[in-house]
Amino acid sequence: MKTLRTTGNVFIFLGLSILFFVLYELVGTSAITKGHQSELQAEFDTALAHPAGLNPAFTGDLPVPGTGGGGVKGIARLKIPKIGVNVIVVEGVTLERLAYGPGHYPQTKLFGEKGATGVAGHRTGWSAPFFNLDKLARGDEVIVETTAATYTYRVTDTIVVSPAHSEVLDGNPKSHAEQQLVLTTCTPKFTAKNRLVVFTDLIQTVAR
C-alpha cells in the first residue's frame, strides 16, 4: 500500500512539473518576448520618423549591433498580413537574439541587397511569431519595412527540410528573382525536428 501511495505521489509530482513547463513555454517565454517587442516597436517607430536624426543607431539597411548596455536594436519591421504577423526583426539568430523576435541570419544578404535574405523565428513559445507560417501559400504577401525602403515580397514556395539543409538560405533554386526573402521556423509545431522554409521573391521596393 505504501509503495502504491509513493508511486502515485511521484506521478502527481511529475505531472505538476510538466504543467509548470507548459506554463513556462506558453506564458513565461512569451511575456519576455512581448516586453522586448514593445520596446523595439517604439524604437523603430522613432527611427522611421527621424531616420537620420534622433536615432543614430538606424542607418538605412545596415544591421545594428547591440548598443550600450547590451541592448538589441531592431533592423526591420516584418509584416505578414495573412497570418497577422507584425514584428521587429533583430540582427542575429542565436537563441538569445530570437528571444527578442525573429532574427536575420548574419551570413545572408541584408534587406535590399541582391541575393537571399534569411529570417528565422520561433514557432513555439517566445510569442511564436511564426506559429502559423505553414498557412502561407503561393502568392501571399510579406512586407518588410526598413528606414531605407519598404519591400514587398510574394511567397513562391514552401518546403520542409531537415536541419542539415542550410543551403535553403541561398534562396529558392527555382526562382530567378534577384532578391529573395527566406523565412525559417521549426516544424512540426512544438518540436525542433525539421525546418519549415518559406521562399519569397521581391516584387516591389518603395524607397523612403
Binding site: Y24, E25, V93, G103, H122, L169, C186, T191, A192
Partner: peptide, 15 residues
Amino acid sequence: VFPWLDRTFINKPTF
C-alpha cells in the same frame, strides 16, 4: 531545466 529543454527539444528554428 526549462530553458535547456526548450532549446534542446522545442525551439531550434535556425540552420
